[in-house]
Design a protein around this nucleic acid. Structure first.
Lengths: 194, 194
DNA sequence: GCCTACATGTAAACCGTTACATGATTAT
DNA sequence: ATAATCATGTAACGGTTTACATGTAGGC
């Protein structure tokens, strides 16, 4: 279980509410972790029990209280000890690859039915290409805003920049792969005169 | 939940035992799915209940019976229907990125303690680089063995080749990123005369 | 003698998702 | 008026992981 570590890692820079953590996991740092608000609230309670975080409640006009979580000294020690431990390679579970693997099942018996099915698959790949392009655009924005001169950064920020680099590389590569797939579909359509 | 679909996808080509599925998910197709033998055995039972797979038991001398699972016509239909449905972008959970994000916590107070800690992190990145290189080597072997002339393949095999391409691209890119990280660590060590 | 491979399975603990629940503010 | 955003939470369910369990055969 490493959601706890991902939360603590975000808390290094500033205190967060559960709500804000959920937003960040969904938007800016979605290339290194993902979690629903449910998991986050439960995990924060556990971390508080273990004294790895501390909470300060902030009253707000016309809104529920905001509970701001801070990392404690014990929390930092816990994180450092963990990060020096070896870990596994991330397991991959890609629906899109399972779909391509099984795509040969699409029936060839009826030409019309088949081209409709293949068209749906093409759409799916185009859609995913766009989603990845959107993510890439977000990461490029972060790059421009926070790391404009990436060659001359203090060490702490270089670590962060390399984390972002992973996201940029991943999405760039994924988009290129989508293009390889879409190119095949295009050639296929051409060859068949569809 | 898509483990069921990943299992059915593998069964397209040939019947499998639970044990063999576990091996493939751990070795040859680990770039598109991962599952323990536990999950697989339970999932196979469910698929059998739904008549999406059929089992033939093979007695073996001095070993437990081998239960070979075959995909049924209903299983194929089920798979095709699923693959025409839209799906989400795969969520990423990368321990190594959380570690880099938190690396700035490594204490600078005591120089000896710090360089020992950073050395451990470097080792971790070198280890992961090697693991990814091993995977890449496996994928290249599969490429040479099954897709020697990748430009001229029947369509069914092109789909499969593009699935493999994703694995090759992913590992290649990951290794390059590890090199970016290791280069930073090397520069750092040089600058400090360690 | 010990470890690995073959082959399947039960049980419990843990993690993750979905639905439900509340309630004010702001934008369309 | 309706939907989205802010902000937190409970309950139930379903998926995943880990530990336990069994037993043969073959390599070091």
């Amino acid at each position: 279980m490493a959601l706890s570590h991902a939360i603590l890692a975000l808390l290094i820079d500033s205190p967060y509410s559960g709500y804000d953590l959920a937003k960040d996991f969904d938007q800016s740092v979605n290339f290194f972790w993902k979690a629903t608000h449910q998991q986050i609230y439960r995990e924060l309670s556990k971390l508080e029990e273990q004294a790895l975080v501390e909470v300060s409640t902030i009253a707000q006009a016309g809104r529920p209280d905001k509970k701001l979580y801070h990392i404690t000294k014990a929390g930092e020690t816990f994180l450092i000890e963990w990060l020096l431990q070896p870990c596994e390679v991330m397991p991959i579970k890609e629906d899109l690859l399972v779909k391509l693997w099984a795509a040969q099942l699409i029936p060839v018996a009826h030409a019309i039915e088949q081209s409709a099915s293949v068209a749906k698959l093409i759409e799916e790949f185009q859609r995913h290409r766009e989603l990845h392009q959107q993510r890439l655009a977000t990461y490029h924005q972060i790059e421009r805003k926070f790391y404009p001169d990436s060659d001359h950064l203090p060490i702490a920020q270089k670590y962060r920049y390399l984390v972002l680099r992973r996201g940029i590389r991943y999405e760039t590569d994924y988009i290129e792969w989508c293009d390889e797939v879409l190119k095949l579909f295009a050639n296929q359509a051409e060859g068949k005169g569809v």
